[in-house]
Amino acid sequence: MQRVNMIMAESPGLITICLLGYLLSAECTVFLDHENANKILNRPKRYNSGKLEEFVQGNLERECMEEKCSFEEAREVFENTERTTEFWKQYVDGDQCESNPCLNGGSCKDDINSYECWCPFGFEGKNCELDVTCNIKNGRCEQFCKNSADNKVVCSCTEGYRLAENQKSCEPAVPFPCGRVSVSQTSKLTRAETVFPDVDYVNSTEAETILDNITQSTQSFNDFTRVVGGEDAKPGQFPWQVVLNGKVDAFCGGSIVNEKWIVTAAHCVETGVKITVVAGEHNIEETEHTEQKRNVIRIIPHHNYNAAINKYNHDIALLELDEPLVLNSYVTPICIADKEYTNIFLKFGSGYVSGWGRVFHKGRSALVLQYLRVPLVDRATCLRSTKFTIYNNMFCAGFHEGGRDSCQGDSGGPHVTEVEGTSFLTGIISWGEECAMKGKYGIYTKVSRYVNWIKEKTKLT
Rank of each mutant, 00 (worst) to 15 (best):
Q2R: 15
V4D: 07
V4T: 11
N5R: 09
N5P: 09
N5H: 12
M6H: 08
A9D: 05
E10F: 13
E10M: 12
G13E: 04
L14N: 03
T16D: 03
C18K: 03
L20C: 05
Y22D: 02
L23M: 11
L24R: 03
A26I: 10
E27H: 08
C28Q: 04
C28Y: 02
T29Q: 10
F31E: 15
D33I: 08
D33T: 09
D33C: 03
I40G: 15
L41Y: 15
L41T: 09
R43G: 15
R43P: 14
P44S: 10
P44N: 10
K45A: 15
R46T: 14
Y47F: 13
S49N: 15
G50S: 07
G50T: 15
E54I: 12
F55V: 15
L60R: 15
R62A: 04
M65S: 08
E66I: 04
E67D: 07
E67A: 05
K68F: 05
C69D: 04
F71R: 15
E72H: 15
E72F: 15
E76M: 15
E76T: 15
V77Q: 15
F78K: 15
E79I: 13
N80T: 15
T81V: 14
E82M: 08
T84M: 04
E86D: 14
K89C: 04
Q90F: 08
Q96A: 10
Q96K: 07
P101I: 03
C102M: 00
C102V: 00
G105I: 00
G106M: 01
K109E: 07
D110M: 05
D111H: 08
N113V: 05
E116H: 06
C119G: 01
F121H: 14
G122R: 04
F123L: 04
G125R: 00
G125C: 00
C128I: 02
L130M: 14
L130F: 10
D131V: 06
T133L: 04
T133E: 05
T133Y: 04
C134Y: 02
N138A: 04
C141E: 00
E142G: 07
F144M: 04
N147E: 14
N147Q: 13
N147K: 08
N151I: 09
V154P: 03
C155A: 00
T158A: 09
E165T: 13
N166L: 02
K168R: 12
S169M: 09
S169E: 09
E171G: 05
A173R: 09
F176W: 07
G179S: 01
R180G: 03
V183D: 08
K188I: 12
T190A: 09
R191P: 13
P197D: 08
P197V: 11
V199W: 11
E208A: 10
E208T: 13
T209V: 11
D212C: 07
Q216N: 09
Q216E: 10
F221A: 12
F224R: 10
T225I: 11
G229P: 13
E231N: 14
E231C: 08
P235M: 09
G236I: 06
Q237M: 09
P239H: 01
Q241H: 12
N245F: 05
G246W: 05
K247F: 08
A250C: 07
G253N: 02
V257M: 03
W261I: 01
I262P: 01
V263E: 01
H267V: 02
C268T: 00
C268A: 01
E270Q: 12
T271K: 09
G272D: 09
V273N: 12
I275M: 07
T276K: 07
G280K: 02
G280P: 02
G280C: 02
I284K: 08
I284L: 14
E285K: 12
E285T: 09
E286S: 10
E286W: 08
T287V: 10
T290L: 06
R294L: 01
H302L: 01
N304T: 05
Y305V: 01
Y305H: 06
A307R: 12
A308P: 06
N310T: 07
Y312Q: 07
H314K: 02
D315S: 03
L318P: 00
D322H: 05
D322K: 04
E323Q: 13
P324L: 03
P324S: 06
S329G: 13
V331E: 00
V331Q: 01
P333G: 03
I334L: 06
I336N: 01
D338L: 03
K339F: 08
Y341H: 05
Y341I: 05
L346Q: 08
F348I: 09
G349Q: 05
G351P: 02
V359G: 15
H361N: 15
R364V: 10
R364Q: 11
L367N: 13
V368F: 06
L369T: 13
L369W: 07
Q370M: 05
Q370F: 02
L372P: 03
L376T: 07
D378S: 12
L383W: 13
R384N: 09
K387W: 05
F388G: 07
F388Q: 13
Y391Q: 14
N393R: 03
C396W: 01
C396D: 00
G398N: 03
F399Q: 14
E401L: 14
Q408W: 14
G412R: 03
G413S: 15
P414K: 00
G421I: 03
L425W: 00
T426H: 02
G427P: 01
I428S: 00
I429C: 07
W431A: 07
G432S: 11
E434N: 12
M437N: 06
Y441V: 12
K446M: 05
Y450W: 00
V451S: 13
W453D: 00
W453V: 01
T458F: 00
K459T: 15
T461C: 10
